[in-house]
């Protein structure tokens, strides 16, 4: 799953992940404006708490990532939100390693941002019903991309390491559905209550409008 512990990945992969995360953190912090900080904080806290709740499925256990929702609501600011959440989880609970922070942040945050960006024209001015479907699609694609990236990172580190496709499928399958449902409801709610949260950012050159 997304919290890869220390001592599994190879040095080049760790360094690559760290560089990608550092660069995207730089971009995100530069774009971050004061008015959006409370929102980023709340979403970061939501991610921190939500990804602690765990359900066991067969031989493994899964937790929510909310990466699609974070990408839609925060855009680039999802990177610091995920990073802070992961740092605290690593320090407090030992979930995910300290050396793997870069790789883990990259795997969780970037797919959400990418898919939210690609779908932003569709979700702009969407009715709650359409927002729900678009949100669900973004969430499902983000989770699937994270699964692919985790598998890629593990295989790149050690070609002998075998990812069991069956286990990945049975653990990520239900997660994908769960995330899609939750993000769908969240997007429908946001589209009804404060639609600018879902799309204003994309119109105003990266700035989040404050209502």
């Amino acid at each position: 799953m997304a919290h890869i512990p220390d001592g599994i990945l190879s040095i080049p992969v760790l360094a690559g992940g760290a560089v990608v995360t550092a660069v995207s953190l730089g971009i995100a912090l530069k774009r971050l404006d004061e008015d959006s900080l409370p929102r980023v904080a709340v979403v970061a806290a939501l991610f921190f708490v939500a990804s602690l709740i765990n359900v066991s499925i067969g031989p493994t256990s899964v937790h929510l990532l909310l990466s699609g929702l974070m990408g839609l609501v925060l855009g680039w600011a999802a990177v610091p939100a995920v990073f802070v959440g992961l740092v605290l989880q690593a320090i407090f609970f030992g979930f995910g390693g300290v050396t793997t922070l870069g790789v883990n942040t990259m795997n969780i945050a970037l797919p959400g941002i990418l898919w939210a960006f690609l779908f932003s024209p569709v979700i702009a001015d969407a009715t709650p019903r359409r927002a729900a479907f678009v949100g669900a699609a973004v969430a499902a694609l983000s989770v699937a991309s994270t699964a692919v990236m985790v598998a890629l990172v593990l295989t790149l580190s050690d070609t002998a390491y075998t990812i069991s496709a069956r286990i990945v499928l049975i653990s990520y399958g239900p997660l994908l559905v769960g995330e899609a449902v939750i993000t769908g409801f969240a997007c429908a709610f946001l589209a009804r209550v404060s639609p600018e949260m879902l799309w204003a950012r994309h119109r105003r050159g990266g700035k989040i409008a404050v209502s």
Partner: peptide, 18 residues
């Protein structure tokens, strides 16, 4: 207490940033 502490850290951190 660790979970609540973590949420506190997040609020504090972003407050500091703001």
């Amino acid at each position: 207490q660790d979970i609540v502490g973590g949420v506190g850290y997040i609020v504090g951190l972003f407050g500091l940033l703001a």
